[in-house]
């Protein structure tokens, strides 16, 4: 009987170990693995600001601070308003993964915690379409958001990231879009 109990205990521990290993494998994919797979194509994702914004270039680190709400004002004193797409959109996933280094849950928890402690002043504005993002940024001088390069027009300004534009080699932000035949 004690032998049986030990056997059952071993099986349970083994099952738990496999589960934990599988869970760890999934987390590592979410945290650092590239999102591209065989059925998707990539399109550059650009960071856009209001045309009146004097900022032309941002480092990746500055972007991370802005998108995590750790930086609240532009150099000209304007309040930074972060514009995000709705959860689940490929652009948002790219930004969370590439810039913030977080998944959706972590990002949400980060802002809940920041707003609660007062470290973050405003939560991101959620827009349901690229047109909405564009119009919002056009109307708000301190707004910053992201768009696929095909959705950009002259109502907004594209900023350099680490002095690179989408056409430059080494540009890091790319969104995975399904290939349509």
């Amino acid at each position: 009987m004690p032998g049986t109990t030990r056997s059952i205990t071993r099986i349970l521990l083994l099952t738990l170990l496999v589960f934990l290993l599988q869970e760890g494998s999934t987390s590592s994919v979410h945290a650092g693995a590239p999102l591209a797979d065989q059925g998707n194509a990539s399109e550059p994702l650009v960071i856009v600001v209001n045309r009146s914004n004097p900022v032309d270039d941002l480092t990746f680190d500055e972007l991370r601070r802005i998108f995590l709400g750790n930086r609240s004002h532009w150099p000209n004193g304007r309040r930074i308003t972060l514009v995000m797409r709705e959860p689940g959109e490929p652009e948002r996933k790219t930004v969370l993964h590439e810039i913030c280094g977080m998944n959706e849950e972590q990002f949400k928890n980060h802002f809940v915690h920041g707003l609660f402690t007062g470290e973050i002043l405003v939560s991101p504005k959620i827009l349901s379409s690229p047109v909405g993002v564009r119009k919002f940024i056009f109307n708000v001088p301190g707004a910053i958001g992201y768009l696929r390069v095909g959705d950009v027009d002259d109502t907004v300004k594209v900023v350099h990231i680490d002095e690179l534009l989408p056409d430059d080699k080494g540009y890091k932000l790319h969104v995975q879009v399904p290939v349509t035949n």
Partner: peptide
């Protein structure tokens, strides 16, 4: 109006 609109959109 533009300032007011910006403030509204910013949530202020």
């Amino acid at each position: 109006r533009d300032e007011v609109l910006a403030s509204i959109l910013e949530g202020s």
